[in-house]
C-alpha cells in the first residue's frame, strides 16, 4: 500500500490511446502512490519537460514509446539526456520492438531500462510492478 511519501510523478510519452489506458490500469494496481502525466507526441513531451509553467512537476520517472509522431522517441531520449536539468531522470523505453539494435541503440542514448510491450497482459502488469521495484530500490537514489 501507499508508503508515507509524496506520490511518484510518472510521465508517459505515448501516442497510442489504448496503450496509455493500459498503463493507467496497470499503475492503478501499483503499491506506490503515483501520478501519471501523459504526452501524446515527442514535441509535446519536450515542451512539458522544459517549459516550467505546465501543470506537470518535474517527473521522477519517464516511460517513453520509441515510435512517436512529430518527434521520434529516440530524439526525445537524446534531448533529455543532453539536458543538464533532465538527464538524471530515469527513462524507461516501452517498445514493441524486440530488435537487438533498437535495444542497444536506446541504451547507447542513455536509456535506463527497456521493456518490450508484451503480448500477454500479465507480463505487462508484471513489468510495471518491476518498474516500481526499480523505482523503490535504484531510482530513489537519484531523487533530490
Amino acid at each position: 500500500m501507499a508508503i508515507a511519501a509524496p506520490p511518484i510523478e510518472i510521465m508517459l510519452i505515448e501516442d497510442n490511446a489504448a496503450d496509455v489506458r493500459l498503463t493507467v490500469e496497470a499503475l492503478k494496481d501499483a503499491r506506490v502512490a503515483n501520478r501519471l502525466h501523459v504526452a501524446r507526441d515527442g514535441v509535446e513531451a519536450i515542451r512539458m519537460l522544459t517549459e516550467p509553467d505546465t501543470a506537470m512537476p518535474r517527473p521522477d520517472l519517464i516511460l517513453l514509446d520509441l515510435n512517436l509522431p512529430r518527434k521520434d522517441g529516440r530524439d526525445v531520449l537524446k534531448e533529455i539526456k543532453q539536458d543538464e536539468a533532465l538527464r538524471h531522470i530515469p527513462v524507461v523505453i516501452l517498445s514493441t520492438s524486440q530488435a537487438e539494435q533498437d535495444i542497444l541503440h536506446s541504451y547507447r542514448l542513455g536509456a535506463n531500462a527497456f521493456i518490450t510491450k508484451p503480448v500477454e497482459i500479465d507480463q505487462f502488469f508484471e513489468a510495471m510492478r518491476s518498474l516500481e521495484q526499480f523505482w523503490l530500490t535504484v531510482a530513489k537514489l537519484t531523487r533530490p
Partner: peptide, 17 residues
C-alpha cells in the same frame, strides 16, 4: 497488423483479469 492485434489481445485479457 501486430499493433492492433496486441490491443485486442491486451483488452480481452484485461477483461478476463
Amino acid at each position: 497488423l501486430q499493433e492492433p492485434l496486441r490491443t485486442v489481445s491486451s483488452y480481452v485479457q484485461l477483461l478476463s483479469r
